[in-house]
C-alpha cells in the first residue's frame, strides 16, 4: 500500500516516468493477452472485408463493419480476434482459421457452414479482416 502511494507520487512528479509506465503496462498487457490471430502475414483486410460482403457471409453471421451482415444462423463474429476456439473445436490461430474458411466441411463434416471454394489468399484476406475485430 505504501509502495503504491510512493509510486503514485513518483508518477505525479514526473511526466516522463508516467509515459514510461503506461508504455510498459501496454507492453505487458499485449504480451499476456490472447495470442489468437495477432497478425496474418501478407493478408489484406480491406480485400477480406469486400470478399465477406460478396460471398454473403452476413446471411448467417453478424459481422461488425460489414453492411447488412445481420444473419442469425451461425455465431456472431464480433470480437473475433479475441475468441479462443473456432468451430467449437480448434484453437483460434491463423492457420486453423484459414483451413476452416477454405473447407469447413472437411473439418466438421455436416456442419452448417458451406464450402465456398475459397482460394488460399482469399481465405487469408478474410482471416486478416476477422482478426481486426478485437
Amino acid at each position: 500500500m505504501f509502495r503504491l502511494r510512493v509510486l503514485g507520487q513518483l508518477l505525479r512528479a514526473s511526466g516522463a516516468i508516467r509515459i514510461a509506465a503506461v508504455a510498459a503496462s501496454t507492453f505487458w498487457l499485449a504480451g499476456c493477452g490472447p495470442v489468437a490471430g495477432a497478425s496474418v502475414p501478407g493478408g489484406d483486410s480491406a480485400h477480406g472485408a469486400k470478399l465477406i460482403g460478396h460471398l454473403g457471409c452476413g446471411a448467417c453471421h453478424i459481422i461488425p463493419g460489414i453492411s447488412q451482415a445481420e444473419g442469425l444462423v451461425g455465431p456472431p463474429l464480433d470480437h473475433f480476434g479475441r475468441r479462443m476456439i473456432i468451430a467449437g473445436l480448434l484453437p483460434n490461430t491463423p492457420e486453423n482459421l484459414e483451413a476452416w474458411l477454405e473447407n469447413p466441411q472437411a473439418i466438421v463434416p455436416g456442419n452448417a457452414m458451406p464450402n465456398m471454394e475459397l482460394k488460399k489468399d482469399e481465405a487469408r484476406d478474410i482471416a486478416t479482416y476477422l482478426y481486426t475485430l478485437r
Binding site: L55, G56, A59, C60, E70, G71, V73, A112, M116, E117
Partner: peptide, 19 residues
C-alpha cells in the same frame, strides 16, 4: 434480395424469416 452465392444460399434456406 441476395446475390446468389453459396453463403447467401445457405443463410437463406436456414433462416428466410430473418432475411
Amino acid at each position: 434480395t441476395l446475390p446468389n452465392t453459396p453463403g447467401n444460399l445457405v443463410g437463406w434456406v436456414a433462416n428466410p424469416q430473418s432475411i
